[in-house]
Design a protein around this nucleic acid. Structure first.
Length: 290
DNA sequence: CATACGTGGGA
DNA sequence: TTCCCAAGTAT
């Protein structure tokens, strides 16, 4: 039953996992940490090139901590959710100040770092340090919802039942491998939109298949609005600041969006978030780049 | 618990 | 073209 699920997906992983750069032998905990934060809500295929660039530029937490926070935001490029870059910098500073320049090795210590939540703390503890802890991401939730619970998708919010199930499934041997395989399997085969059930190694014991593959019947998952939102305007403003050195006159930023009220609100919120500094009386720059 | 928060690729 | 959504976190 669940033992078969674990064994088969572990075997599948050993034969079919993608060659991601941070899976190379010798990747440091810092490299693992970086890959996990960069991968939050971002497809790993887009992360790989930037991860390599960051590892070359800032090979240790101390290297990033020594740079201005604005450098992290600038080199975040178009990965999205740039507050992650700011928090990564703050996490590097915390590692230098509180952990002797190292990535802390337990999930509890990791959880205390900026930008690190339940998922990332577990993932780094498991993949960098071998801690036996259930890693619960969107892929694993979907795989377990289908294979074990028998539904097409998990509910929008993570439930206590899901945590209990993940804990129950976590084997005592090869637990790191299981965390990696169930996540990878969800990303590659048991996908959200078009699961490749035809090549599924656990089709015969999948509870969702056995139930006749019923359609999802829970509360609707909210779409993400985009056109005309503050998120979009913030993105446009920050893109200008990223591509230019030093301070940018307010006038140059006025050109990216016509609605003055919204534009100024977004500029203010970027400053409030620490993503942008007000320089002089009417210019803006990435933090530390006046 | 719901909502805000970037970006780009695939169907 | 429009919609979906991808290794989530903070509030």
């Amino acid at each position: 039953m669940s033992t078969d699920l674990v064994v088969r997906l572990n075997d599948w992983f050993l034969a079919h996992s993608r060659p991601l750069p941070w899976r190379e032998p010798g990747t440091t905990p810092w490299g693992i940490f970086l890959s996990e934060v960069m991968s939050q809500q971002t497809p790993v295929a887009r992360v790989a090139p930037l991860w390599q660039e960051w590892m070359d530029r800032w090979p240790t937490p101390a290297d990033l901590a020594a740079a201005p926070a604005g450098d992290a935001v600038r080199h975040w490029g178009r990965l999205g959710y740039p507050r992650r870059a700011l928090r990564l910098h703050a996490a590097a500073v915390a590692m230098v100040e509180r952990h002797d320049g190292d990535v802390p090795s337990t999930s509890d210590e990791l959880l205390a770092l900026p930008g690190v939540g339940e998922y990332t703390a577990a993932a780094v503890a498991a993949f960098a340090f071998g801690e036996r802890i259930p890693v619960i991401d969107t892929n694993i939730r979907r795989v377990e919802a289908r294979a074990v619970t028998g539904v097409q998708f998990p509910r929008p919010s993570l439930s206590a039942a899901e945590r209990a199930l993940a804990a129950q499934l976590l084997p005592h041997e090869d637990h790191v491998l299981w965390n990696a395989s169930s996540m990878e399997f969800g990303a590659v085969v048991c996908t959200a939109k078009a699961p490749a059930c035809g090549e599924c190694p656990v089709l015969d014991l999948c509870a969702w298949q056995q139930a006749g593959a019923p359609a999802y019947d829970g509360p609707a998952r909210r779409g993400q609005a985009w056109a005309g939102t503050d998120r979009m305007v913030r993105g446009k403003l920050l893109a200008v600041l990223r591509e230019r050195d030093g301070a940018v006159p307010h006038d140059d930023l006025r050109q990216v969006w016509d609605d003055e009220v919204q534009r100024e609100r977004c500029l203010d919120s970027l400053v409030a978030d620490g993503l942008v500094d007000l320089v002089g009386d009417d210019s803006f720059a990435l933090p530390g780049h006046a």
